[in-house]
Design a binder for these strands. Structure first.
Length: 554
RNA sequence: GCCCUCGUAGCUCAGGUGGAUAGAGCACCGGCCUCCGAAGCCGGUUGCACAGGUUCGAGUCCUGUCGAGGGCACCA
């Protein structure tokens, strides 16, 4: 409908130019949007205002010119009016809306999908937590945002891959190895000294136990270096597996896990470093090799090769991101915790230095989750050993609530998660509000079936029974869905889908209390069933789009 | 000190890429089930941190001030 209207406006503008009442170098495409205030029609255009300057005419006069030349021979429009400083407000006819309802139903679960992505390959990298411990609630937020974003992009016609980057090389893993080794020695009844910077969490003991179960006491007498290596690789594998299971139970899966260690071992990192050396953006200082990231807007230059010859983590990062380009992705999205925001510039700088288009690289920063219990902050951190694991939270409140909750804010806003409140609200919360709308509609159909109502094939004739304000308003809201999804994809803001579905559910609940669907009037019943079927379809699709279930019974 | 993200109702948060009279939920008070599930609906009070600027028009863009959180390693 929007496209049809846009065409009508373009025609009117061209006609106006031909008539000589309007002089424009080129006819612009009208921008149409749904007005906040429903009394301002179904769609509003500000085109007259934006043309005021180039056409050297008063906005309202331009609006007049357009309206006079608008083709009204079709039954698309019911009303057109000029309002305020020069808005043109369009109202569609009820017939047009009923026709739209049928289109929505026949599109089925494809309604909401689009092809704006044009099949472009996009990679979403998210979670990417070090396999040095279980996931905590902050990772959960990143996981949910990344997953929902991937789903929204896929629905918008992108070819999406989900990737997890495993930082399994470097110091953190070394500390894990030493920590596990120390616990292992304790279990074997040997003297051990727990490393100062080690991981104190109890899970490390579990890992040590598992190692001992597999290998017995053999590492207790092995050279320490070898034993720590074994502990590290065993622990890393085990913890990564545990992360994978936790995420899978949360409904999140990845297409690909890329190992930093593998990138180092197969020469990807050194190759990227060599490549960078050719660019003149590296220089030597005090025995180390530096990247001149300040040349690309960074605060300070960054080390790539330490003076002892080791490659830094940054070197791996450069190589890893370079590999994303060579793997043929058109767009690269990283979902990072906000505490890593300092790295955005330097990675972008490195890509640019390598001659890659850093505009195709985008970082979505997910802000910190402030965990509280009855308003009191809960301290977290692997270092202190006290933190709330993601799986505890998911077990406590369920995956649907956890997901929904994380998506009720935009990613770059800080979020407070109150465990006690979440637990208490389990019976009464926004997810159930939406899911309840879905089950209510399922209930309507159960009722209809019980009463022996025969469901009719969708047709204009059946839809003809619909026409009151609430019915048309509901269709109008349904119609907004594809644009919401498109907008969410374009802005990388999956939370928009969540807000939309809450609005739709609310509108349905209101409709439900005001109007009965299964009535004595067969025509009205058929029409209303058609309408609520569409509502159920869209709520279901929207919920699944953010990974939340849409049950028929609760 | 420099950088990043943010500042909207008592609290938690939206505000669709600059539009018309800024919205939800929670909380508080009062109503609504002989009728498709009351996990619902209806009614009631308050707000864009502050000061400039850009233009027909700013919660939205720019600058500054104040405030919150985070980041500023040859750590990962």
């Amino acid at each position: 409908m929007k496209d049809a209207l846009r065409d009508l406006i373009s025609q009117a503008l061209e006609k106006a130019c031909a008539d000589g009442v309007l002089s424009l170098e080129r006819v612009p495409v009208a921008h149409l949007e749904v007005p906040r205030d429903p009394t301002h029609g179904d769609l509003a255009s500000n085109i007259a205002m934006s043309l005021a300057k180039p056409a050297k005419m008063a906005p309202r006069a331009i609006a007049e010119v357009i309206c006079e030349r608008l083709d009204r021979s079709t039954d698309l429009l019911r009303d057109v009016e000029i309002a305020g400083p020069g808005f043109i407000n369009f109202s569609f006819s009820d017939d047009a809306w009923r026709g739209r309802l049928l289109e929505i139903i026949s599109a089925g679960d494809d309604f909401g999908s689009s092809r704006v992505g044009e099949g472009r390959r996009v990679q979403v990298e998210f979670v990417s937590a070090n396999p040095t411990g279980p996931l905590h609630i902050g990772h959960g937020r990143g996981a949910v945002v990344g997953d929902a974003l991937a789903r929204v992009l896929a629905a918008s016609g992108y070819d999406v891959d989900r990737e997890y980057y495993v930082n399994d090389a470097g110091r953190q893993m070394e500390m894990l190895g030493q920590s596990v080794y120390a616990r292992y020695l304790e279990l074997c009844g040997r003297a051990s000294e727990f490393p100062d910077e080690g991981y104190p969490g109890d899970y490390v003991i579990d890992v040590a136990k598992a190692l001992r179960e597999r290998d017995g006491d053999k590492w207790a007498d092995a050279p320490e270096g070898e034993a720590v290596d074994a502990a590290r690789s065993f622990g890393g594998d085990l913890l990564l597996e545990r992360i994978r299971v936790d995420l899978a139970e949360f409904g999140i899966e990845f297409d690909c896990f890329t190992s930093e260690k593998a990138l180092r071992e197969d020469g990807t990192v050194s190759a990227a470093t060599e490549e960078l050396k050719k660019t003149q953006h590296l220089y030597e200082h005090e025995g180390a090799l530096w990247f001149r990231s300040t040349g690309f807007g960074d605060d300070k230059d960054r080390t790539v090769v330490k003076s002892n010859g080791d490659l830094t983590y940054f070197a791996s990062d450069i190589a890893y991101h370079r590999s994303k380009f060579t793997r043929g992705y058109d767009e690269i999205i990283d979902v990072w915790g906000a505490d890593h925001h300092g790295y955005v510039k330097r990675v972008g700088a490195a890509l640019e230095a390598l001659g890659l288009d850093s505009k195709r690289f985008r970082v979505l920063l997910v802000q910190i989750v402030n965990l509280t219990r009855d308003g009191e902050p809960v301290r977290m951190g692997k270092r202190t050993g006290e933190f709330v694991e993601l799986r505890q939270v998911v077990d406590e409140v369920g995956p649907d609530l956890a997901r929904f909750f994380f998506l009720m804010r935009k990613a770059d806003a800080q979020l407070e998660f109150d465990l006690e409140l979440a637990r208490r609200q389990t019976a009464e919360n926004p997810v159930f509000y939406v899911q309840y709308a879905h089950t209510r509609i399922a209930g309507i159909f159960r009722q209809a079936e019980a009463k022996g109502v025969v469901l009719l094939e969708p047709s204009l004739g059946v839809a003809a029974a619909l026409g009151n304000e609430d019915e048309i308003a509901l269709i109008r809201t349904l119609n907004e869905f594809p644009e919401v999804v498109e907008g969410a994809a374009a802005a990388y803001e999956p939370h928009r889908v969540v807000f939309y579905v809450q609005r739709l559910a609310g509108e349905f609940h209101r409709f439900y209390t005001r109007h009965k669907c299964v009535t004595d009037d067969a025509d009205l019943t058929a029409g209303r069933l058609l309408l609520v079927q569409a509502v159920k379809q869209v709520i279901g699709r929207a919920l699944r789009l953010v990974g939340v279930s849409a049950p028929d019974r609760m």
